[in-house]
């Protein structure tokens, strides 16, 4: 198992570095991979015999790198939360959207866009504002998840199928209120809301990177520790309890970390669908269901996938760019359909 794990992680890390270098080099000002490596290493004091123009380091450090790093962080968060939630629901088709994370975050973000003029602490353009925005969106997502979770609790334990149904109901309610927000929004706000729901990494700066990082870092560090319990949890809630898993604690932690990992990304980049659903699935095909391997691998693969998707969305119709949520949906939805058809029999059980 240890071999399989290090093999999987080293392949994915290599691929991630490769993809990042390509993504950093691609754009209106093209940089070769060697130039990218040269400029990056110069940043830590290592001089390589590579020639590049004067503007290149500025473009790389101020424009390209923060955007790629943001894609890596948000992608890792989406991937890892997908793996955690699929483990929690013991269902390979579970997705962060199911339990209200995206809907709650959308509603909060729409409310912030429309109502921010009434909120005194939201006026300045400082990092504090970005943090406040993230924290509020995160709290909104957390609140919806909490309601969904509480609705599913019966006799001290949460029933997973009820949680899915509550998710549908709360999702509907949230989108109704988001609709209400769009109704009262002015033209400028409407445009913001629409772009936000399509998802985009266009606004990436080092500030947004710093604002998102802690929210994703904590789950990425904590979720792998839960791998043994998640494996046993696959047997069923009762069996996990019989085997010594503190089931309620596990479920609560999984939901908090999954929400953290998704909500902060959603707060700055909007709704980016299907990565949380598809990534754990693809990884499972290669590594099997063992969460020791699955959880860190999905973080890396989510990062790779979102970096590639973002690269596509800003090159396909350059100099304009597509919202990244459209790219992930166009490629992710057919994969989802294929999964449903493939697993029809399992779902029917």
């Amino acid at each position: 198992m240890q071999n399989k794990k290090s093999l999987s992680l080293s392949i994915l890390s290599t691929a991630l570095v490769f993809v990042m270098i390509i993504a950093i080099g691609t754009g209106a000002m093209h940089m070769s991979p060697l130039q990218v490596i040269g400029i990056l290493l110069k940043g830590i004091g290592i001089q390589l015999p590579v020639t590049y123009t004067e503007q290149m380091p500025a473009v790389l450090w101020m424009i390209r790198l923060p955007r790629v790093v943001l894609a890596v962080i948000i992608g890792a968060g989406l991937g890892i939360s997908g793996a955690a939630l699929q483990g929690l629901f013991r269902n390979p088709l579970a997705d962060p959207g199911l339990i209200g994370i995206s809907a709650g975050a959308s509603l909060t973000a729409a409310m912030l866009i429309v109502l921010h003029v009434y909120l005194p602490f939201m006026v300045s353009g400082s990092i504090f504002q970005t943090y406040a925005q993230n924290i509020i969106t995160f709290l909104g997502a957390m609140l919806t998840v909490l309601i969904v979770f509480r609705m599913s609790v019966d006799g001290g334990r949460s029933i997973v199928s009820v949680m899915l149904l509550s998710g549908i109901a709360i999702n509907a309610l949230c989108s109704a209120f988001t609709g209400l927000m769009t109704y009262v929004a002015d033209n400028e706000q409407l445009r913001n809301i629409t772009f936000w729901t399509l998802g985009s990494l266009g606004g990436a700066t080092w500030q947004t990177v710093l604002a998102v990082l802690p929210f994703v870092l904590v789950p990425v560090l904590m979720l792998p520790r839960m791998a043994p319990a998640l494996n046993v949890f696959a047997l069923g809630e009762q069996e996990a309890m019989h085997s010594g898993v503190q089931v309620n604690k596990l479920k609560t932690q999984l939901i908090i970390y999954a929400t953290m990992a998704v909500a902060a990304g959603v707060a700055v980049a909007g709704i980016i669908g299907f990565i949380g659903l598809v990534v754990p699935h693809i990884i499972r095909q290669f590594t099997g269901p063992d969460h020791h391997i699955l959880i860190p691998s999905t973080a890396l693969a989510g990062a790779i996938l979102l970096t590639v998707a973002d690269l596509l969305c800003r090159t396909i119709i350059a100099p304009a760019e597509l919202p990244v949520g459209i790219i992930t949906a166009i490629t992710g939805a057919p994969v989802f359909i294929w999964l449903i058809l493939k697993e029809k029999r399992l779902i029917a059980v």
Binding site: N231, A234, L235, S243, G244, V245, G288, P289, D290, L346
Partner: peptide
């Protein structure tokens, strides 16, 4: 028992050692 994830037999038995 309803285990749908494709764990191997050895992995399932090893889960017994969790405690």
């Amino acid at each position: 028992l309803n285990l749908q994830m494709p764990f191997t037999v050895a992995e399932v038995v090893a889960m017994g050692r969790y405690a």
